[in-house]
């Protein structure tokens, strides 16, 4: 007999209501003004594009709100440009300077992850309740550098576990208003996902070598001394196709495992991304972007947002209106304590 005391389980789907025609205009103006202002406007453009995409990502009738200040994004862009410019320029002549830059980047990784998570969280809101990220650099260093080192020592075998710990760290340290997220994730699902991806790559490699072998036999049998360029380009195309499929599979699997493990208060996320959908989307996106010399980029952005929203919902017993905003210490901690160093959007 059913437990009659349990509150009814309600499902709240995400809906994306954005239109390509609207987003295209914001995107095109952003591109043009960025060029005319030597890149300075790109920060303003990013905020406008994000605000459009957030506002049209709707849950229970209300859109999300992106509140970042363009100036903070501009600062982050300048930092990223200096870092990557340093790596790119030094790479041409001074290998040791490049090694030094990459080491610096590695050491900075915990700061970058914490700073960008914090920036994105506290500039994202739903119904005027702001998200937050409470993770510290020390925690990020433990997960990224400490656990990352274990991956290297274990010759990569520990990678699925590392990915699970990283996802758990990111999910667990987020808050929606006063309600912290909790993570319900097991390493098992991650191991299965990466193992299958690995086997798919091996399978593709074997099939391709067989294909090249057969191709070589066929052409030499035909008495031609020079292999047809088809047999040169075909394996490359096949390799990219295989890579795309495996990439789509991992995006879907790891995305689902992470989102399905995210719990906030009485609600749980449910993500049902499918590898074959993503593979088709990625492939058609690539074709569209190349065929239109980039003009299809806003269409790609909108259709991806629409698909991701359609495959995501929150399930729970409590009404969505029950979430409270952070008050007192929790509300100010993110603002003042860490200072200006964190008020940049270093998204890499």
């Amino acid at each position: 007999m059913a437990d009659t005391n349990a509150a009814p389980l309600s499902i709240h789907p995400f809906i994306f209501t954005g239109r390509t025609a609207d987003y295209f205009r914001i995107w095109a103006v952003s591109l043009c003004l960025s060029l005319l202002t030597l890149g300075v406007y790109s920060a303003w453009g990013k905020v406008r594009k994000r605000r459009y995409l957030y506002a049209h990502t709707r849950l229970d009738g209300s859109g999300f709100d992106y509140r970042a200040s363009p100036v903070a994004i501009l600062k982050g862009r300048i930092i990223a440009l200096l870092l990557f410019g340093g790596i790119a320029l030094s790479g041409h002549f001074l290998w040791f300077a490049q090694v030094a830059f990459i080491l610096l980047l590695l050491l900075l990784a915990p700061w970058i992850v914490v700073a960008s998570s914090r920036f994105n969280a506290r500039n994202s809101a739903w119904r005027n309740v702001v998200f937050a990220f409470d993770g510290t650099i020390r925690e990020a260093a433990k997960v990224l550098l400490g656990f990352g080192a274990i991956v290297i020592v274990s010759l990569g075998l520990g990678y699925p576990w590392f990915r699970m710990r990283r996802a758990r760290f990111i999910v667990e340290r987020h808050r929606f208003g006063a309600t912290p997220f909790t993570a319900d994730m097991e390493t098992g699902g991650f191991i299965v996902a990466y193992l299958l991806a690995f086997l798919m790559m091996i399978g593709a490699g074997v099939l391709m070598s067989a294909g090249i072998g057969i191709g070589a036999v066929v052409t030499s049998g035909a008495g031609s001394s020079k292999p047809s360029p088809v047999f040169f380009f075909l394996p490359i195309a096949a390799l990219y196709a295989a890579y795309l499929v495996v990439f789509a599979y991992l995006q879907a699997r790891i995305g689902n495992l992470t989102m399905n493990g995210a719990i906030v208060g009485p609600l749980r996320c449910r993500s049902t991304l499918r590898a074959r959908d993503l593979a088709w989307l990625y492939l058609s996106n690539i074709v569209a972007v190349i065929a239109t010399a980039g003009l299809a980029v806003p269409w790609v952005t909108v259709r991806m947002a629409r698909y991701r929203a359609r495959k995501l919902c929150v399930v729970g017993t409590a009404p969505l209106t029950s979430f409270a905003a952070a008050t007192g210490a929790a509300a100010t901690a993110t603002g003042s304590e860490v200072g200006d160093l964190f008020n940049v959007d270093v998204s890499l």
Binding site: L35, K46, L81, G85, Y282, I286, I290
Partner: peptide, 28 residues
């Protein structure tokens, strides 16, 4: 080196937030 770096800067300025497939529209 200078011209190639200039291209990299131009592309970053235009599409600094390019990820995924959009990145291809910049890289290619």
């Amino acid at each position: 080196v200078l011209q190639n770096s200039g291209i990299a800067v131009l592309m970053t300025a235009l599409a600094g937030d390019a990820v995924g497939v959009t990145f291809l529209a910049v890289a290619l």
